[in-house]
Nucleic acid binder design. Structure first.
Lengths: 263, 263
DNA sequence: TGCTGTGCTTCCACCTACCGGAAGGGGGGC
DNA sequence: GCCCCCCTTCCGGTAGGTGGAAGCACAGCA
């Protein structure tokens, strides 16, 4: 009776993870049926697993009955070391930069062929932009992206150049032009964009290096016009990037600590 | 041969979650053996499950061989609706507040009997404080905490009053004194602390209400002395809190986690 | 009031994907 | 070399997981 056609090759662990993966920025809240469908699980199976996840705190049920990512996942996410360490060091300098310029401040790392926005500051007066913390935007169309791309390994550049999708009419889609710009980024130490990602928004960005000189992140400013006083803004960015570099010291890569105690 | 004493009553799903739960702010990086021990799983079992979690991106292996929370968990955590919605609305106002005062800005919600710091801004010049985004601090010893406590339901106040742990010599531990302060918080519309959480640090805080007038969060400033120009600072806080309230849609905040939270 | 649709919850016999002790491998300290 | 610690792989037995189906709850509609 009880039909049982367990789909082979799919472990329980991966089912739990697939349920989590069903959520994304466009689907932050899902009813059970959609959750099951997006995770590729039968309704009854999803129901059972989801109940366990709610008990643990990974998911919560909103008043409307839909499921959402729970507070406990937020806690866990904050422990992710790549963004957490960088943010911790960078945050005060980003504040200073915002205070000095009142432009939107971006702090990003490269995640594959995309720029991952680790932090972002903007006041209530700032331009409305597509960037959000956690967003992934194209490397070739943003200030921080160009910096990261200019210092990315060859295979990554190759993949990005293979698909220069236009975002606005001003997005650079000619590989030769972009290649020239990246060479200038490496030579001059900063990148710029002019309405290549959002109409009406221009940006400047500089690399952030670790103690070994490796480019690990990029720091940028975005406003309706940044080119008039570009020299000053690049100077401010450079000062902040140096401060961040100094703060990173020798501990950015997992040190070995704790405890002979037990045993 | 193959000994098999599967521990009953523990589902695979909960094992996966327990592995995640083995990480906390004091153990953001764990080698396999510690991870297995903290999750209460045999080494071989942990090894198998962890491998799947790494494949999916929930965990990553650091260069030293230890496991850490992966970027994909960071992404997921950002989708948690309670902090995400509040932060999105509040962030620009927090920036403005920081720009106007240059004091450390705190934005917190109540999580059970603790204040959960949802956001925090401070420049490179600011005081070093114990607060961090994601931190949970006592309600009775912080500015934002007193605001949240003053507007908390009776059972919560009861539980907090039952255990007024001193943090510094100035922490309020007399229930009668605290009760008087909370009454004043409700009457005056703001709370203050004087070195009750960190020596040398004082704070002011005001409630943030939603469209229905319910207190959903608290907004605070901390500096070495805030009482001299308290009137101005409270005014700035109040303006920011009103701005946040206006930015909030109606059903913005999910019900609080008011369970005794095991662990 | 009854009908229909949608979505959630519970049930349970089958059986496979999971379990975990033990053995094997690798590297670093002494 | 020798030991210790930690990681990785293996494999027979079986218990936890599976998912179709039935039942329930509720809302919209005539």
């Amino acid at each position: 009776m009880a039909g049982n056609a367990r789909r082979p090759g799919v472990s329980v662990a991966s089912r739990v993870l697939d349920l989590l993966g069903a959520f994304d920025s466009e689907h932050p809240s899902l009813i059970l049926s959609d959750l099951a469908r997006r995770a590729g699980l039968p309704l009854a199976t999803a129901h059972r697993l989801v109940a366990e996840m709610v008990t643990w705190g990974a998911l919560v049920r909103s008043p409307s009955g839909a499921y959402e990512i729970g507070l406990r996942m937020w806690d866990l996410g904050l422990l992710a070391q790549v963004p957490a360490r960088l943010r911790q060091v960078a945050a005060p300098f980003l504040q200073d930069l915002y205070g000095a310029t009142l432009a939107t401040v971006h702090f990003a790392v490269r995640d594959g062929t995309l720029a991952l926005y680790v932090d972002r500051l903007s006041g209530s007066e700032s331009l409305q932009l597509v960037s959000r913390v956690g967003a992934r935007l194209p490397l070739h169309a943003t200030g921080v992206g160009k910096v990261l791309l200019a210092h990315a390994p060859e295979p990554i550049r190759h993949r990005v150049f293979a698909e220069l999708t236009p975002v606005t009419p001003y997005t650079i889609t000619d590989p030769a032009v972009l290649d020239g710009q990246l060479a200038r980024v490496r030579a001059d130490g900063y990148a710029e964009t002019r309405e290549e990602m959002s109409l009406g928004a221009c940006s400047l960005a500089v690399p952030v290096r670790d103690r070994e000189g490796e480019v690990v992140a990029a720091l940028g400013l975005t406003a309706s016009s940044v080119h008039r006083n570009a020299t000053q803004l690049v100077a401010a960015l450079t000062v902040a990037a140096s401060g961040i570099r100094r703060g990173m010291s020798h501990r950015m890569v997992a040190p070995w600590r704790d405890h002979p105690s037990a045993q």
